[in-house]
Structure formats: structure tokens, C-alpha cells
């Protein structure tokens, strides 16, 4: 599992290095970056966004409310107006872009005028078939709205924070983290009324890599969820003891405590159920816990 986590991290670096490399290429006068984006409506209220860019990867993002999952695989064509990718038993994307209407240069937040991309609207035609694990979402189309974004002087594509980000969320009073193989759990507690959604916030992110086989391409799946909750779910009145019991889709309780060995343990039946998956344990001896009080400092416990 540790190797898997490392592999995920390495792959993520490769993916992001691909983005950065594109920007550098533009700065050196080489070809501009082009991104093909498609938006679709999935079943059960999920939104589906598919994109393919200069890194030669296809990203298929599924989102609804506080949940998001991104499926990344190799784009077999890596052409600016065509996409062909197998999502390892979950679906296929094989489309060609057809422009419709004039090129626009929309205003983009956090992006200077020089860096502003151009946008060619249009549609894609071909095959888009995707079914999430245990069919939690389905999407099937032979045509979809799409656009090609082109950046001439470095991409602003990742310049802006995600729209749901609230800067007040940084002002936590205490927080707890637990890192396991391919899993990261974050819990934050706030002063009453500091954020509008509740006095506690729970965030979990997972990374899962399926290696390439002779028959199947690699597939990387990131999943994340953020859940607001009342302060009563984050009990840390005792300075060295913490109990966390977030609301669904979390279940159970996690407990952080000091032992007579002066080791801090993170135990309990806390788990998270992502759509289409069995519950994922979020507590136990495989997690490295950390607990911080904004005014005092942090406790970080390392594994054996």
C-alpha cells in the first residue's frame, strides 16, 4: 500500500509537471496549450466534466454537493480536437470536436489580460459512456457541449481557487489530521459563527492508482468530500484527548488519546462511505495523527 501511495504521489507530480511544462513551453515560444472541455449531466443529480489537455491525460470529474471524484487516464490520441480513452471497465470516451460560433476571450478571475485564454465553443460527437462504481452515476451521450481553451502566455486554468472555497475556513481554532496509505482525513473546529456552514468541517481525500496491464491502461482516481457539522461532533475539551464523530456519509467515532508510553493513538470505528464504495476506515494504527490548537501548537505522532 505504501508503494501505491508513493506511486500515486509520483503520478500526481507527473500530471502536474505536465501542466507546468506546457506553460514553460509557451513562455519559450512553442505551441500554446489547448484544452478540450466537455460538460454533461449524469444520473442522480451528478455533474460530469471531461477534459483533455497538453499532458496527454483525460480527466473525468464527477461532482455533486460536497463530493467530487476525478478519474484520470491516458488519452490515446492527445490531439487538440480529438479524445480517445478507456476508463478501465468504467467507460469510454472517444469524441471529435466541432467548432460552433465565434472565438471568445472571456474574462477569467485571477488572470491578467495578457494571460487571458481564448475559447472556441462547439460540441463533441462520438461516444461518451461512463458508469461510476456500482453505477452510482451514469452518463451516456453521442454529443455534448464542449469548448477548446487556448492559452498563449501560460495557463490561468488553475489560477483561481475552487468556487466553493471560503477563506474564512482557514481560521480554525483547532484541527485534527490523520494520514494513511492513500487516505487523508482533516477535521477543523471553529469559533462559534466563524463560518456560516457550521462550527466544524470534515474533509477527506483518497487517491487510488490501478497500474497499467497489457490489457488495460492505468487509472488514477481521486475522491474528496467536505462535510460541515455542528461543533458537538468535535470534542477536544481535554488537552490531550479528542473525540470525533462526523455526520454521514461518515460513520462511527475516532478517538485521539495519549497512552502511558506517551504515544498518541488514533483509534475507533470512524469510516467514510464514498458513493459506490464500501466504507473506508479512517482510524487505526495505520494512520499518522496530528492535532493542533491554533494558539498553542501541534502534536504530531509518527508511525513505527
Amino acid at each position: 500500500m505504501r508503494a501505491l501511495r508513493v506511486a500515486v504521489a509520483v503520478l500526481a507530480l507527473v500530471v502536474f509537471a505536465g501542466f507546468g511544462g506546457g506553460a514553460a513551453a509557451v513562455a519559450k515560444g512553442r505551441a500554446p496549450e489547448r484544452w478540450l472541455d466537455m460538460d454533461l449531466q449524469g444520473s442522480d443529480g451528478y455533474s460530469v466534466h471531461i477534459s483533455s489537455g497538453p499532458s496527454g491525460h483525460l480527466n473525468l470529474e464527477v461532482s455533486k454537493g460536497w463530493f467530487a471524484a476525478t478519474y484520470v487516464t491516458r488519452d490515446q490520441l492527445a490531439a487538440p480536437d480529438r479524445v480517445k480513452a478507456q476508463l478501465r471497465g468504467l467507460g469510454t470516451v472517444s469524441v471529435r470536436f466541432h467548432p460552433r460560433g465565434p472565438v471568445r476571450q472571456p474574462t477569467t478571475p485571477y488572470c491578467s489580460k495578457k494571460q487571458r485564454p481564448t475559447l472556441q465553443p462547439g460540441l463533441v460527437r462520438g461516444t461518451i459512456k461512463f458508469a461510476g462504481e456500482r453505477d452510482y452515476v451514469r452518463v451516456e451521450a453521442d454529443e455534448a457541449k464542449a469548448s477548446i481553451e487556448e492559452s498563449k502566455r501560460g495557463s490561468c486554468r488553475y489560477a483561481s481557487p475552487p468556487p466553493e472555497f471560503d477563506p474564512r475556513e482557514r481560521d480554525w481554532a483547532s484541527k485534527f489530521t490523520a494520514s494513511g496509505d492513500g487516505v487523508f482525513f482533516l477535521a477543523r473546529r471553529y469559533q462559534p459563527g466563524a463560518i456560516p456552514t457550521g462550527d466544524a468541517l470534515y474533509f477527506t481525500e483518497t487517491g487510488e492508482l490501478f497500474k497499467e496491464t497489457p490489457a488495460l491502461p492505468w487509472l488514477l482516481i481521486w475522491r474528496e468530500i467536505k462535510v460541515p457539522a455542528p461543533a458537538s461532533t468535535f470534542q477536544d475539551a481535554h488537552p490531550e484527548h479528542l473525540t470525533i464523530s462526523p455526520p454521514p456519509p461518515f460513520s462511527g467515532t475516532g478517538s485521539f488519546a495519549r497512552t502511558p508510553e506517551s504515544v498518541f493513538t488514533w483509534t475507533g470505528d470512524l469510516a467514510l462511505q464514498f458513493p459506490g464504495l464500501d466504507p473506508i476506515p479512517l482510524a487505526g494504527s495505520g494512520f499518522e495523527p496530528g492535532y493542533c490548537l491554533r494558539e498553542s501548537g501541534c502534536i504530531d505522532q509518527h508511525l513505527d
Binding site: E261, V263, I299, H302
Partner: peptide, 9 residues
């Protein structure tokens, strides 16, 4: 001595 964050022992 047991250092903060170190494993049991």
C-alpha cells in the same frame, strides 16, 4: 526520555 511524536519506546 521519550520524544514527542516518536514511536513507542
Amino acid at each position: 526520555v521519550h520524544q514527542e511524536g516518536s514511536p513507542p519506546g
